[in-house]
Structures are given as structure tokens and as C-alpha cells.
Design a protein around this nucleic acid. Structure first.
Lengths: 251, 251
DNA sequence: CAAATAGTGTCTTTGAGACAGTATTTA
DNA sequence: TAAATACTGTCTCAAAGACACTATTTG
């Protein structure tokens, strides 16, 4: 497939397929989990893969990612944090275009990262034969026992997405994207603990997040769904950048 | 150009052109500057644009960006900081794929960010009729008087690249990519001041960078090229992540 | 000499981490 | 009652910002 082309003549261009792949993350049962779908046909038939699909001729990249997300999960996407409910945070992650990443032809994939609160049960969309939430710890070589790798270069894409999420909750309010519309400080702390895989001091965490301007806004109510003394309920505040940032231990 | 396709059949895919565009930044005369080339043909004939070109059928995205960088500047790219000399830092920035971003056809551009030390004079590559280093302050609406916008969506791409550079020198050693192989603490401070557009206290800056483990390594020599008392020369150290980070004033 | 840049020291304030202690619920 | 979670306060240490001071060059 050699195509003669001049540098400024797009009518003679080498043809590529462009897809979007999604790293959809949530926190369930104190673990960071990613949405996977099982491939129904070759290549990599029977392997688990990230959800995704072709970008249509007349839609933008974010639009395609948003459409795929809705097809796979029913979530509506937005790029500002704090909506909760049936919404997920969605942002572009990176683009993967190794010439042989798809054995059939040249495919460039624009990966996106979606962060969502815990959802009922995965809803397989399109023609994927099934879908599941997989703890990322079991997928990223930390537990190589479970070891069937993901299809294509999706293991690398997932690792990049997880790393992006881990670093972004340090200096942004994105951790609230993993929470329902109203949540307690303890629930937010469990998000940080699950995403970072560390234990945080509940007392210092409380002082920190309630003292960071614009991070949390009291919603007025309280809840005892975590047991113990009733906890104040909060909504995400208007701040998107945290100043000072949350500090990840060790690193 | 409507193409019938099934979700998993890439032999019936909607055709896209894929390009790489480069945000090449350097610091000259105390100002952050970007490399621009003038377009020789429509659309946007006579406008300034970011350098870039088509990805070839058998090359990867980083490979294409590296090739374009060499064609436009003669720089060899690497993705680890501190090489200096004829090398530039190169990393993927983001991908831009609005359906109408190129009036001729559907083009998806994978933008890359390159950081280079001050270079002799721009070397127009390919068939660009000329090239220049433009101070980014004059391009980003901060001085709207100079006001001819860039071609396509390159103004947005440039803004995203500058923002990436500004934030990345906070927590990484990337500022050394703007320096020659050996440099003084004062020269490194001028890089931070030019990229951030602020004045920093030379004494606190000196204490900070020399106290951050792995950031700088004394090379043994001294220089008086900045005037005044001879200054120690340093090379970039092995650290890529700065802990604690450099703090940008105000923000 | 003055002026410029390099480098050190010192004080104050902010904030992170450790952790004691109190408050309010459920079992 | 014990146990769990929510929250407040206090101490210590690290580091950022302000800035006085000394060191070594050029003009």
C-alpha cells in the first residue's frame, strides 16, 4: 500500500483507519476497576479488550468517544468534574499508532480516559459477547498470575490511563468523578486509597480536603451509610485545580 | 464519502489522513518562542503554521514526528531530558480531529511537543517558503495587536503545547531541555522566567535547584558568560521527576 | 571604584504527618 | 456496653518566601 503523495496534497494521502478506545475506570469494593469487553472475532478472538470503535466520517474524536461510552455503559460524558449521576468525566488520553498494532491494517487509535462512579452491572453494547469490570491490579503485572494479556496494545493503553488517573487526582478535583453526586469525606478518601493503592490517615485527610478551597461544598444532609457517627454529605465544589495539591505518599 | 462498515471489519473503514504537527519551543532573548513555517499554497496560503506533514504508511507516530523535526530544524529527538547538543526533547501532545479542521478533507493530526536549546537560525525544510521563531506571547492573544491567526487550528495546538511545557517544568527536569549541555543556575533560572513569564528570586531559586536531588550535576567548570562572579557549570542530572517540585508563583 | 552576577545564611510562615482526644452512631 | 466512623486539636518538621550579607568578576 504505497501511495504517491506530495507533502501538501491531501488528495493523495496514505489511508489510515482511525478508532477511539476507552479506558473506563471506576472504584468498586475498594479497588480500581477497568471496563473490558470480550472480543467475539479474530484477531485476538476470546481475549479481553478495551471498548472502542471506528470514528465516523462526520464526527469529532471526543464525540466518537462519548458515543462509544454511551453504547457500552449508558453514561453521558462531560469534561468538567462533579456532575455525578449518570455522567462520567471524559478526556483524551493519548494516541497509539504503531504500524503493526493491528495485524489487519494500519489503525491509529485515539484513546480516551473515562472516570465514572460505581455502576450497577456492565451492559455489553454492540456485538461484544460480554463485558466485565476487572481490578486493574490484576491486569497490570502486579499480579501476573491472572495473566491473560489484553488484545492489541490495550495493556499499554490501560497502564497509561491508570497512570493518568493516579497523577491527576493529585492536583485536580477529579477524584469526585468516582463518587455519586453526594458523598462523605470518608467515601472520597476510599477513592484516593483505591486509586493510589495506599492507606491514608483519615484525620489528616479530612482536615486537608475540607480546607482546600472550592474542593467540597456541604450539601446540608448527613448519612450513616458508612456506619458510625453520621457524616456530613458534600458535593463537588467549583474548583478544578487543587491548590495546594493532594500529596501521594512515598513518591 | 459515506462508507458502509461493520464495527469489527477494518477492511471497510472510513478513510482518514493522519498527520503530525509540531510545537517546537525554545528560549531566545528571554522569551519563549515557537517555530513557525509560512504556507506556500492554499488553504491558508501565506499564513504562518506549525511544521508538520503526513505520517507515512510504515512509520510510527513518534517516528514521523522525529523525522519532521529533523527536516525542519536538523535536531535529533529523544524522549529523555538532558542530552542537549543537537538533541531535542520530543513527546506526544494531543490529537486534533475536528471533522472540518482541514477544509479539503478529513485529517487527524497527532500533535507533538519538542523542546530545544536556542538554535542558530531556522532552517526552512521541505517546501515551506520560510520559517521563523515567534515569541509565543505575541501569538496567544496576550498581544492581540500582532493578530494574524495561525492556519487551521494551530493556534489552539500551540496554546496546548505551551500550557504543557509550562506545567511540566514544575514537576520534571524538562527545563534543562531548553539549555545547552552545560549551563549555569542563572541560565536555568532565565528559562523558568521566560517560560512562566514571571521573575524569580535568584537566591531562593539557587538554593532550590541545587538542593533538589538528581536535578543538577556539577560539571566541574565555571563560566563568566553571564558577567559578574564566575558561575559553576552544571549538566542535567539523572532525575526526571522533581521532588519536591518547582513552584510557579501566584497560581 | 561601581555594578553585576554568584552564592550563603537566617527568619517567618505555611502546611504535611503523627497522633491524642472527643462526638455520635450501630450492634 | 464495645466498636466503628466522624471530626478537632496539637505538636514537630520540612520547605517556601523574603531578604541581609558576602564573594568575585568586568568596566
Amino acid at each position: 500500500m504505497i501511495v504517491t503523495m506530495s507533502r501538501y496534497d491531501p488528495s493523495a494521502f496514505p489511508p489510515f483507519a482511525v478508532t477511539v478506545d476507552l479506558v473506563v475506570l471506576t472504584v468498586r469494593e475498594h479497588a480500581l476497576c477497568a471496563l473490558l469487553v470480550r472480543r467475539g472475532e479474530p484477531p485476538f478472538q476470546g481475549y479481553w479488550a478495551l471498548p472502542g470503535g471506528f470514528v465516523r466520517p462526520d464526527e469529532g474524536l471526543a464525540e466518537a468517544a462519548s458515543r462509544e461510552l454511551a453504547e457500552e455503559t449508558g453514561l453521558r460524558a462531560h469534561s468538567t468534574p462533579g456532575q455525578g449521576a449518570a455522567g462520567a468525566h471524559l478526556e483524551q488520553l493519548a494516541t497509539y499508532g504503531h504500524p503493526q498494532r493491528d495485524p489487519r491494517m494500519r489503525v491509529v487509535s485515539v484513546a480516551h480516559l473515562a472516570l465514572a462512579p460505581d455502576l450497577p452491572t456492565p451492559r455489553p453494547g454492540g456485538d461484544a459477547s460480554s463485558a466485565r469490570w476487572a481490578p486493574v491490579g490484576e491486569l497490570l503485572g502486579q499480579t501476573p498470575a491472572d495473566g491473560v494479556p489484553l488484545a492489541f496494545d490495550h495493556g499499554k493503553i490501560l497502564a497509561d490511563g491508570v497512570e493518568r488517573a493516579r497523577s491527576k487526582i493529585e492536583y485536580s478535583s477529579l477524584a469526585t468523578a468516582f463518587c455519586p453526586p453526594e458523598f462523605t469525606v470518608g467515601e472520597l478518601r476510599q477513592v484516593y486509597e483505591a486509586v493510589w493503592g495506599v492507606a491514608l490517615d483519615p484525620r489528616n485527610f479530612h482536615r486537608k480536603v475540607t480546607g482546600t478551597p472550592g474542593f467540597l461544598v456541604p450539601s446540608g444532609g448527613t448519612t450513616t451509610r458508612q456506619g458510625g457517627r453520621p457524616a456530613q454529605l458534600f458535593k463537588a465544589g467549583g474548583a478544578t485545580v487543587l491548590n495546594p495539591p493532594m500529596l501521594r505518599p512515598d513518591s
